[in-house]
Design a protein around this nucleic acid. Structure first.
Lengths: 207, 207, 207, 207
DNA sequence: AATGAATGAGTGTTCATTCAT
DNA sequence: CATGAATGAACACTCATTCAT
């Protein structure tokens, strides 16, 4: 799937961690090389530059960001169940790639670097289309109402998750989440359910 | 309200803009001083250090971040209308302070700097309490259902907005928003409505 | 005449010396700052960059490169004497700026950097014109012959000097020149005379 | 004559070109290896080091630098004609090895590297002796005058050429030389003649 | 009260070279 | 015999900060 060797992958993993923790500009190559226990020249040697390291990292993780749901929908399940599965799947995917999403969210907001948005736009559009198909199916089956802004549902799904994640200390205090494990469990069992409830209500309730 | 002089305020405004655009680490004091047309030494002189400049900036803007809704709820309006107002008010506030929120969101995610979270926690808790009061009122009036995770509603409200904002290029393309004005109009008229719909559905619909 | 302060001038002098000795690329900012006993950041601080240091150096010395001969020719002297004076003056000027000429000669040959040749072209053309005027005068007085390629006389004058200078070790051995002083004396008394003889012969002798 | 294999010769040729264009320090092994389409390690492998590559290059070209005039002077020609031939031959040789001379001129001026001057001294002395023989012959035949500094004639011959060459842009403009071909033609037909005229005048004209 | 001058530490990057294979 | 992988040292340059005035 990727043509990075073991050393390169180690560097990418360290970089991912640090970029997520401290931002791209807040992370120095020296720091990466120190933690990854490699020579400082290796980053330039392997990736060309710090910026290209970021690009490589994105490339390395991009395949992980695509939702692979095709087979998920072969089965005979109701649109409602499909929505639930879609959300659970999406949140789980994002949560298990949270470092990468943290990086992308920030670097995307920044006007400094222009990440190759064509790739991401394509992924987003693909995911959006999947969602649209499910909703269309539900609307045709008269289960879902019609006057809903489908494009804004993804912001609600992911935005809820990201906001929760960005304010981890706050919600950690509120919900008494002490470990990374606690956090992940909360996401899996409560946050996901909340988002599912929210979206289902939006799709079903007429107002 | 604040004890910053005119020059300091100018610096803070430039810093806010640049920190939002390029991140804290991606912005140099040189750049700030150049744009603000002040001497480089002035930042350290006025604020002590770059880090303290950020703290001052947060302090300077913090009062803007508090929702001032007290008087809003004196009137006799239904809980549903109150929720709508609350959301509209919240989004409008956040959108008009988006640079500051952009900075806070990122710096908060970062493990590098520990912003004085006591202040923000207090603000967040205050806003949360306001929301809780409204919902309690609606539940008591049997308009809202009971099994809802109130603490996760703010993530839905703000998260939807932030995700939309962070992916401005994507949604700009989808919704054909060409100017900052178009964007603000879309937020005001469509995104706000979507969030209101979503939260109302969640609060009312039983599932 | 120049707007460089004392520290800057010191740096320029050290840079001139080192650039002449080791070439621009062979000289590091570290070395300059060490010898000039200044902080390494000062070069960038004062001049912007290493390349701009070179430009500043050229600017600093450019005025020295112009032949100021005007007053020299007010007097009633023969064209032959004027040629002799011109050559003596030119060689003396070049020899006392030999470091600068060494730098210019090399950097000019190099395709890497394009020194602002407009300035130098102007100087060269000015000097050439001075020479042309003298020769014209001699030709009008029927002292000098006509079929001479005036433009190639400067190459003969300066080229002879530079070749001698570039092969200092060789000629030092041949002529037993042991010190810088010996060298300068040889230039002043013998090389200059040789060049004068050469040019005069060329201008007078018919072949 | 040389024990360099084809690959080594290719490297030497590329190095010669680049050293002439950008100087020794301005040229990186990476660049050489890229253009010569060889592995970076090959330079060190074949030549030991970058510095030794330069030495090898000089060694490789040294034989080209010797004037092979022996057979030229078997014939019954006048000293004047011999001088003319000597100059034409010398200039032609130097011009066709101009890259190498460019390198030597610079690296010789530099105090950084001490090129094995014994070899060059020998060559120069040999060439000088040839010239001396011719001039002696002319003086004995009472064609040339006696009071001439023979050792300074080579500086005049080569210096004129080098100065012309180092200021190619300037003379290109003056003489309207647009291509390398134009330049070479000018050297061959006009510059050479000028130098011949100059030296002949110096040798014949009494002053 | 304000600033120009200056600096040490740190930045990303390139260098020639080495070495295991 | 030849080379891809790797590296320590050095590179030019920028950083936030200090300090004398």
């Amino acid at each position: 799937m990727s043509d990075f060797n073991q050393k390169q992958i180690e560097i990418l993993q360290v970089a991912e961690q640090l970029f997520a923790e401290k931002g791209f500009d807040g992370t120095s190559i020296r720091e990466i090389s120190k933690i990854a226990k490699i020579n400082i020249a290796m980053v330039s040697y392997y990736f060309g530059s710090k910026e290209k390291l970021l690009e490589s990292l994105i490339l390395f993780r991009t395949s992980d960001l695509k939702l692979k749901l095709e087979n998920l929908f072969d089965e005979k399940v109701s649109p409602l169940q499909k929505i639930e599965k879609f959300i659970a799947f999406y949140i789980e995917k994002v949560n298990s790639n949270k470092n990468m999403y943290q990086i992308l969210n920030f670097e995307n907001s920044t006007k400094k670097r222009v990440l190759d948005s064509a790739v991401f736009t394509a992924i987003k559009k693909g995911n959006l289309q999947t969602l649209k198909n499910i909703i269309k199916e539900g609307q045709d089956a008269l289960v879902f109402k019609k006057n809903v802004n489908v494009e804004l549902i993804t912001p609600t799904i992911l935005g809820t998750y990201f906001y929760f994640n960005m304010n981890k200390p706050f919600f950690g205090e509120i919900f008494n989440l002490e470990s990374e494990n606690d956090f992940n469990d909360y996401v899996k069992f409560h946050l996901t359910k909340h988002i599912q409830q929210t979206v289902k209500a939006l799709l079903i309730y007429e107002n």
